[in-house]
């Protein structure tokens, strides 16, 4: 059993169904999940990473339940949040990267060496003693990526990782992403960020309404977004 396996996932938050009956087996190297704000994309990302246990159904990676077996999750899946300030826990770059490695059971000295090796791989060896607080938004996002990759996960889940970044920074980060061996599951509302992806899931109202290769899903998605853009559905309040 390999890859991300979602079987009939249901999640209810504060009495409101956020995800309903989502099923998919993801084995492709690059999977995009698209949808509007509030479609349940972020919740699905958290379910895949094991941070939210589904109220119904089962979510597994390589046969293991990521929400129940956090130790397996540490070795299997990494997640990058939308806002890097919500992710960076440590005052310096080196500590931030080394933390995940000590969490995986490496001795502090070995973890530090591995963290330096990861920085060198990205040509950022001189970042090691830098204060995380002083980094730019794009640099912070790259740090999050390096911290997650250092743990050698099989799957990297990214929740709108490029929002709020300027175009050159986004292109640079996307180039870094191309070189990653791990399976990438990227959440976004911007089809432009999914070039070269193998498969696209489209969430709407907590349900999977399309699932297939980008050529089949993205043009329909974009057309639908444009059509809805002509309406005024900002008027509706949730709940």
């Amino acid at each position: 059993m390999t890859g991300v396996e979602l079987r009939d996932i249901g999640v209810t938050l504060a009495g409101r169904p956020v995800l309903q009956g989502v099923s998919a087996r993801l084995e492709e190297p690059r999977v995009g999940i698209v949808g509007r704000n509030g479609s349940g994309k972020t919740t699905l990302a958290r379910v895949i990473a094991g941070l939210v246990a589904p109220d119904a159904g089962q979510a597994r990676i390589d046969g293991a339940d990521m929400a129940a077996d956090r130790r397996a999750a540490l070795a299997t899946v990494g997640i990058i949040f939308q806002n890097p300030d919500h992710q960076i826990i440590f005052p310096t770059v080196l500590e931030e990267i080394a933390f995940g490695l000590t969490q995986q059971g490496q001795r502090p000295r070995a973890a530090e060496a591995a963290a330096r090796a990861m920085l060198d791989r990205f040509g950022k060896g001189h970042w090691a003693p830098a204060a995380t607080h002083s980094l730019s938004q794009g640099q912070k996002q790259l740090l999050c990526l390096m911290a997650v990759l250092a743990m050698r996960p099989r799957v990297v889940v990214m929740d709108e990782p490029f929002s709020g970044l300027d175009i050159p920074t986004r292109l640079q980060l996307m180039r870094y992403l191309d070189g990653i061996a791990a399976q990438v599951v990227m959440i976004t509302h911007d089809p432009g960020q999914l070039r070269g992806f193998d498969r696209i899931l489209w969430l709407e109202g907590g349900r999977l309404i399309a699932d297939g290769p980008p050529d089949a899903v993205l043009p329909r998605f974009e057309a639908q977004m444009r059509e809805w853009g002509g309406l005024d559905d900002l008027a509706h309040l949730a709940g």
């Binding site: 130790r71 949040f81 059971g105 502090p108």
Partner: peptide
């Protein structure tokens, strides 16, 4: 609100696991 987010980030990387070596080398 920030604390909630950071708690989640901490959990994403294993939280405070007690059987992890935290001494010196």
């Amino acid at each position: 609100d920030d604390a909630d987010h950071v708690a989640e980030a901490l959990r994403a990387r294993g939280g405070i696991l007690n059987d992890i070596p935290d001494g010196r080398n």
